[in-house]
C-alpha cells in the first residue's frame, strides 16, 4: 500500500508500523465518575468495520509522525491521511 503522508508525500506502507483504531486518541478523563468503565471500553473494545476505518499508523522508518489514515478495509483504498496531532487537537485534546 502507499500512504500519502501529509508532510512527505506518498510513502510505501512498509515504512510504517500499524497500531489500529484511531479511537485510541479519545482517551477518557481519569477523574470522570465512570472512569473505570470508560477506560475499560477504551482499552478493550474496538469496532471492526467492513468498510471505512480510521486507523493509526506510525512512520517509524521515516519522520516518526503518528498518522490517522482513513482506509477502506474491503478495498484498501485510502481516502484521507492526517497528522494524528492535528486530529487530536481538533478533538479537543491538549495537555
Amino acid at each position: 500500500m502507499i500512504i500519502d503522508h501529509p508532510l512527505l508525500g506518498p510513502r510505501d506502507s512498509s515504512e510504517f508500523v500499524y497500531l489500529g483504531d484511531a479511537s485510541l486518541i479519545d482517551r477518557p478523563d481519569w477523574q470522570a465518575e465512570n472512569a473505570a468503565e470508560a477506560f475499560y471500553d477504551y482499552a478493550y473494545l474496538r469496532d471492526n468495520p467492513a468498510g471505512e476505518h480510521r486507523e493509526l499508523w506510525f512512520h517509524e522508518s521515516g519522520d516518526r509522525s503518528w498518522l490517522v489514515v482513513t482506509r477502506n478495509t474491503m478495498t484498501h483504498e485510502i481516502s484521507k491521511v492526517e497528522l494524528a496531532r492535528d486530529v487530536a487537537r481538533a478533538q479537543g485534546r491538549s495537555k
Partner: peptide
C-alpha cells in the same frame, strides 16, 4: 527500546498534542 519510544511518541502526539 523501540516499542517504548513508539509508545512515548503516541502519548506525545495523539494524547497530549499541546505539551
Amino acid at each position: 527500546a523501540v516499542g517504548v519510544y513508539r509508545h512515548m511518541e503516541f502519548v506525545r502526539q495523539c494524547l497530549f498534542p499541546d505539551m
